[in-house]
Design a binder for these strands. Structure first.
Lengths: 358, 358
DNA sequence: CACTTTCGTTGGATCGGTTCAAATTTTGAC
DNA sequence: GTCAAAATTTGAACCGATCCAACGAAAGTG
């Protein structure tokens, strides 16, 4: 039997086109990459051959090897891929990263995995020029993996004191201070703190001392910021209850159950994330506690949901767009010197905070 | 001057490691790709050399060429990249695509571009095994580009009658019929339609005849579905006002201003998207029109925002998760035969629809 | 007509790995 | 101690392009 057009469809290569058109592969390449330097007659002949053989243009796989640059940045997280589309903070951040990438024509590869073995492989084999790493609380594994790739990478919102990794974060202490000062200036004197996790230990009431030993420096710094500012108003921070949540509805509600069970419930709540604050708003509404009439609350992050909640949430807004822009810039224009950057935060006053009740 | 360790950091290649460890590059490759077939002593030696020279593991760029498969699927749209994180429908779809990819260990590359020249290049040079194309209304350019890459691709929710492109869509006619029947069975007899765009012509009142000539078959089919069902209830559809929106607040509000200006305002509104319906809900609330007391409204798409709106939205839900799963499966397990699939839709009855007022 | 430009084309080198048949070494059996 | 079988290692081929020095032909110059 003659070979014929065998069952398998072997892909058409540039070299096949060149042969068919009777030119060298160098010329064939030029037809696609720099058509202007090829004589028109030849150009047309090659294009015709390509068309006839069903050639889909130069395969980027081949080009890539030579070019070196992928022109795409990888965004990595330890969470499942859908995190990028579900989580409010991630979405805003991704939108800003997207814009920065669009502006420079770079693509985005989402890197993640169900299990951590897969994750390692996915990071090792990602076709990207660099990584932006979404650092969940204490997720140093991800940073380690990214570092091993020896590609430029920046960590976002890094909860770690490792000064050797490039990171773009915010001044948690100053931000928390802003929130505390705002409430104190409104006359509040009885506070409660709904904290982010300190470690992987679950949730429940905790103490300042324990938070000081926290695995996650974000949680620690925000508490420090709160308490430093409150102290300057002569408030005895040792009396301020701290409840460690896991940033979900259940633990936040449990925290509020706990906090409001006492004889002298707080008039002001410092929530370490908007998500916590929004869940708290639900709890307060269900318990007929007026916000900000009876209780004021200030969140942290500045996610868009906070602007349309009932009431709209006073919060410490991270400059999310700016962070995204800088991260992309750091990867794309990396001159080898990625540094740590702390961006300032803004207090956004909305309707969830008001004067302390008389 | 001797070369020394020159200023430029030239990347370390596998061959360098092999030489340093005194083995062939074949063996060096095996150390990383199939460590179990390499004698332990050699393995350790090579690994040590890699460590010492700062080798970040085999470069995927090199592997790719040989392997052929990228193990990533490209998701393309003509909109800016941030569309994936902003648009409710896109987000739900992406979340489901993400899950399907996570399950199979595939990655996701987001492909898009600010201008259409960039878009062509981005599609031509995307390192992916196939494309899922988000077809905006009548965006055939994107389909054309994807087709030229000669890679497997499926169009999502394709608004085109081109039977030669693989597409996963829904039965718009049947879905619209469900919505119309629901309202008719609740006793409604005075209807209005808030339509999606028919072409790129802007917004304003339109007619059934014009919609029949619509560029976008989705809009056309949904209207056909509505009217076929309404006719079967002996409703004179020629009297039903149709207002073409561009799926944003401004055009929806203008449409309602127009529709409710008449002497006999409708008691039931058929909205061709949830986004339209949600904007309509805002307008109705601002005009003190009770939903569903005075007016009932049914949306289309089934985005999650519809479940938490005030009131929650009755809608025709697309099986978004299933569509995402099938699209990913079609690309990844592509046996060369991608087909058109029409998935059934579901009517989800919530609180925005009720009996017609007496 | 010889000589320099200019223009287009060629073919080899290169990018950084993987793979596999063949060569070599080690191990096991008798 | 010899030989076959098993375990390792080698080195060339290949993946699909781009790039560039060198070359041949056509055009321009004196």
């Amino acid at each position: 039997m003659a070979p014929m057009t065998s069952g398998k469809t072997r892909p058409v290569r540039l070299a096949d086109i060149a042969k068919a058109a009777g030119v060298s592969h160098g010329t064939a390449s030029n037809v696609f990459a720099r058509p202007e330097i090829v004589r028109e007659e030849v150009r047309e002949r090659v294009k015709a051959a390509a068309e006839a053989m069903g050639y889909g243009g130069p395969d980027p796989k081949g080009r890539l090897l030579r070019a070196g640059k992928v022109n795409a940045i990888g965004v990595a997280t330890g969470e499942p891929l859908s995190y990028f589309f579900d989580d409010p903070f991630a979405r805003v951040m991704m939108a800003s990263i997207s814009q920065a990438c669009d502006a420079t024509g770079a693509g985005i590869s989402l890197v993640s995995a169900a299990n951590s073995e897969q994750l390692a492989w996915n990071i090792q084999s990602a076709l990207v020029d660099g990584f932006i790493v979404f650092c969940m609380e204490g997720d140093s594994r991800l940073v380690q993996l990214a570092r091993e790739r020896k590609l430029p990478f920046v960590a976002l919102d890094l909860d770690s004191d490792d000064q050797t990794v490039a990171a773009i974060g915010i001044d948690n202490i100053a931000g928390a201070g802003l929130a505390a000062r705002h409430l104190a200036e409104l006359g509040h004197r009885r506070f409660a703190v709904l904290a982010l996790p300190c470690a992987d230990a679950g949730f429940g009431p905790t103490t300042q001392a324990q938070v000081e030993m926290a695995l996650y420096s974000g949680t620690r710094d925000r508490l420090r910021g709160y308490f430093a500012e409150l102290s300057s108003f002569d408030i005895d921070v040792s009396l301020v209850p701290i409840y460690e949540t896991v940033n979900d509805e259940k633990s936040v509600w449990a925290g509020l159950d706990h906090i409001f069970a006492g004889a002298e419930p707080p008039t002001a709540i410092l929530a370490m994330s908007d998500r916590i604050a929004l869940h708290a708003l639900d709890w307060l509404r269900q318990h007929d506690i007026a916000v900000p009439g009876d209780v004021s609350i200030v969140g942290f992050d500045g996610v868009p949901e906070g602007a349309i909640s009932e009431p709209p949430l006073t919060t410490v807004a991270q400059p999310i767009a700016e962070m995204g822009r800088r991260a992309v810039k750091a990867i794309l224009e990396n001159d080898g010197s990625l540094s740590r950057q702390l961006l300032p935060v803004d207090l956004v006053v909305r309707a969830s905070s008001g004067p302390a009740p008389a």
